[in-house]
């Protein structure tokens, strides 16, 4: 059923009128034109659509809009206004990306990891990040970037 919902996205209130079952991913991409959050699998298995819900990393393809009224959502566009979040800076410094498609999701997961665990061990990184797939194979650089961001925090 089409209903009206108000969400807080990147600190701004946003009102949308959509099917109550529409996942947050498609609200962001197709309704609000926030294209940084990527569609990869639609079943919560690849992490390309990772956003923060009240500061916690979640898969936006698995969250129906009806469950999110008045919740705080942060997308890659809102992680840092000038793309200067320590994780983004480390990503640039390590020159992580190849194709780049999965990297928004990787960065959002990494930022959530460091928020809850500022000094993660290698094993912590592996465990936390294993929901994010990268076919280009940038995993070793991602780990290095996370360690670098943690060291500079």
């Amino acid at each position: 059923m089409i209903k009206k919902f108000t969400l807080r996205i990147n600190k701004k209130p946003q009102t949308v009128e959509v099917d109550e079952n529409m996942p947050l991913l498609w609200v962001l991409r197709d309704v609000l034109d926030l294209k940084g959050t990527k569609y990869g699998c639609g079943v919560g298995s690849c992490g390309a659509c990772t956003v923060h819900l009240n500061g916690i990393a979640v898969r936006s393809c698995q969250l129906p809009i009806s469950s999110l009224a008045n919740q705080n959502i942060t997308t890659i566009e809102g992680l840092a206004e000038k793309a200067d979040h320590p994780v983004q800076k480390a990503w640039l410094d390590v020159d992580v990306a190849q194709c780049g498609y999965c990297q928004s999701g990787q960065i959002m997961s990494a930022a959530a990891l460091l928020k809850s665990n500022p000094n993660p061990s290698e094993e912590d990184i592996d465990n936390f990040m294993s929901g994010n797939i990268c076919r280009c194979g940038t995993y070793t650089r991602i780990k290095k970037a996370i360690q670098q961001a943690a060291a500079k925090k």
Binding site: K35, Y39, Q88, W91, Y101
Partner: peptide, 16 residues
């Protein structure tokens, strides 16, 4: 990578 900053900022670079 000359598009590195755009990638980490989630800019709409892809066909999708």
């Amino acid at each position: 990578n000359v598009e590195g900053t755009k990638i980490v900022h989630g800019k709409p670079l892809f066909g999708m």
